[in-house]
Each structure stands twice: as C-alpha cells, then as structure tokens.
Simulated assay, not measured.
Amino acid sequence: MTDPRVPFLRARYAEEDQAAREAGQIPCGDAWLGDPMATWRAGSTPHGGQWGGLRWYVEDGHEDGVVGRVDPQAAQDEDIARHIARYDPAHVLSDLAARQKALDACAYFLHDNEDGPDPCAEAVLTAFVQPYASHPEFPEEWRS
C-alpha cells in the first residue's frame, strides 16, 4: 500500500513544475529554460516610480527582459527582488528534480523493508509535506 503522502507530494510537485515551466516561457513562445542568457537577476534603476528613488526589478536575461518590479515603499524592496530572482524557473525545476528523487527513495524504503517502514524515510516524508500544510487536501494528522 502506498503511503498517502507520496501521491500528495507528487501532485504538489507536478503543480510547481507546471508553474515553473509556464514562468519559463517568453512572450514569443520560445522557452528560455536552458538558455544561458536567460537567468533571472535582481537590479535597481534610478527611475523609481511615483515616489522617486530606486525601483527594484527582476529581469529574464533578454533585452526586453523585465519580468516584474518590486516597488512598494518598504526597506525590503531589494531583498524581495533578490528572493524572486533566486527562485527563477530553472532553479525551481532543479530543486523539484532533487525532491522527486528523494521522494522516490522514500517511497521505496517505506515498503521494501522487512523490518517495517524505514524511520529515515518516515522523517523525510513528514518534513516534505509540512510546506503544504495550508493546502486544502492536507490532513490534520500530517501536521508535525
């Protein structure tokens, strides 16, 4: 019997994968995922919107490239833009691939162990589901 956390996580990972792949498309329809010029980065511009000052933005590495800007008047503008740029689609997909491999190993060791479920696999699955605690399909008994 499959641990119910495994299909739950596979579904969440599929949702994240789709969102990252959709974010990795440029308007002309060509994917920039895998394009060495297409890395997101955060930067500032002196053209600071209606309040003046710096405006932080995220660009996709192409000439036209502003993906979005962060310009609420808060001290954390630069930090927010850098955070967005750090989690660009290529990074998200790489992270998902690593989590998927770990999930596959956990699924294997939960059921192919004559001594019962592997405690390490149990701990990893418990940790992996926690970021999804606000998801409507998240059962209360999974909360750690």
Rank of each mutant, 00 (worst) to 15 (best):
A14I: 04
G65N: 03
R5C: 06
R69Y: 13
V58K: 13
L9D: 04
Q73Y: 13
D3C: 04
V129Y: 00
P119W: 07
D88Q: 11
W51Y: 15
A98L: 10
A105E: 14
E140A: 15
V129D: 01
Y57A: 05
N113K: 04
P136L: 05
W40P: 03
C28W: 14
A102K: 14
P7T: 01
G29P: 08
P119Q: 13
A19I: 09
T126C: 12
P7G: 04
P131F: 09
G48I: 12
P72F: 13
T2A: 12
P36Q: 09
A75K: 10
H62V: 00
P7A: 01
V6S: 04
G29A: 07
R41N: 08
Q25K: 14
L96Y: 02
Q50Y: 06
V124M: 14
A75S: 08
L9Y: 03
A11C: 00
Y87A: 10
L125D: 03
R82I: 02
E63A: 13
E140W: 07
D95K: 13
A31M: 07
D112R: 13
W32C: 03
G52L: 11
V66T: 11
G43S: 11
V124S: 10
A133K: 13
D35R: 03
D17I: 02
V70D: 04
V129M: 02
T45R: 08
L93F: 06
I26Q: 14
A105Q: 14
A42E: 00
P46W: 04
E15R: 05
P36Y: 02
V67K: 12
S94M: 11
G52H: 05
R143P: 01
L9W: 10
E78W: 09
H111V: 15
R55V: 11
A121N: 03
Q73K: 10
D115R: 12
P119K: 06
A14K: 01
F128N: 05
E22N: 15
D112Q: 15
G53Y: 06
G52T: 05
G49M: 02
V70W: 06
H62M: 13
